[in-house]
């Protein structure tokens, strides 16, 4: 993949990540200026789920890059998009956290302490955000060099933990009977299973090569 194509795709990816944020800001502006129902009957709920789902989706897409590359080596260039997607996931997660702090807790410290001490779904959500924080902070090339590739990779496996916490947070947050978190859960489950499966396949191939059997 040549540099020009990568650049074009990066522009597209930026647009794809920013467009939903733009949509949200546009609806927000509409609801301020002319149409109070622009964000639906329960705007707080709309914004909360929009940013929360966005975070999980971006996180899962960024986690899919490694298995896809290993499965289809031709798509190796996808690695150049992972940092960007991860950072957008964190950005979306920050918007989601802000939604909570402003619209649910009303920036009241006692309300926040109350929630964290009593509500497991809030704890899971905060845990997910706190897990993403060091990953965002060490996303620079300088950090990779400083930490060394191996340590950096091990640290960034926390992205899986963040996604798991996020999905648990989602299930704990919705009421009994609502199955909307199911789709993202299945996708994340597949990604978690893909890693050991791909390792196993690679080990098989290596063993076969060692025995001198050509691999198709």
């Amino acid at each position: 993949m040549n540099r020009r194509w990568i650049l074009a795709l990066k522009v597209c990816a930026h647009i794809a990540c920013l467009a939903p944020v733009g949509w949200l800001l546009w609806r927000l502006w509409l609801s301020v200026s002319s149409d109070p129902s622009a964000l639906g009957p329960d705007p707080t709920h709309t914004v909360t789920f929009f940013t929360g789902r966005g975070t999980l989706r971006l996180l899962v897409i960024s986690l899919a890059i490694t298995p896809v590359r290993r499965l289809i080596p031709k798509l190796n260039w996808l690695i150049r998009f992972r940092r960007m997607l991860g950072l957008y996931a964190f950005f979306c997660g920050c918007l989601h956290l802000m939604t909570y702090l402003w619209l649910y807790a009303g920036f009241s410290w006692s309300a926040i302490v109350d929630d964290i001490s009593q509500r497991r779904f809030i704890v899971a959500g905060v845990a997910a955000w706190l897990t993403l924080l060091p990953l965002a902070l060490t996303s620079t090339t300088w950090s990779i060099r400083k930490l060394g590739g191996k340590t950096w990779n091990r640290l960034h496996r926390l992205a899986y933990l963040a996604a798991i916490s996020g999905v648990v947070h989602y299930w704990w947050g919705v009421k009994t009977g609502v199955k909307t978190p199911l789709a993202i859960t299945v996708v994340l489950g597949m990604l978690l299973a893909a890693r050991p499966l791909l390792n196993w396949r690679a080990a098989q191939r290596k063993a076969a090569e060692a025995r001198g059997i050509p691999v198709g």
């Binding site: 609801s31 329960d42 705007p43 707080t44 709920h45 914004v47 649910y104 309300a111 009593q118």
Partner: peptide, 22 residues
């Protein structure tokens, strides 16, 4: 008396603009 999963101290007013819902 909070619901085990969320606070009952506050509520969101349906149909109100987002900054005045709470």
């Amino acid at each position: 008396r909070d619901h085990p999963r969320w606070s009952q101290k506050r509520e969101r007013v349906i149909g109100a603009p987002i900054w005045r819902q709470l």
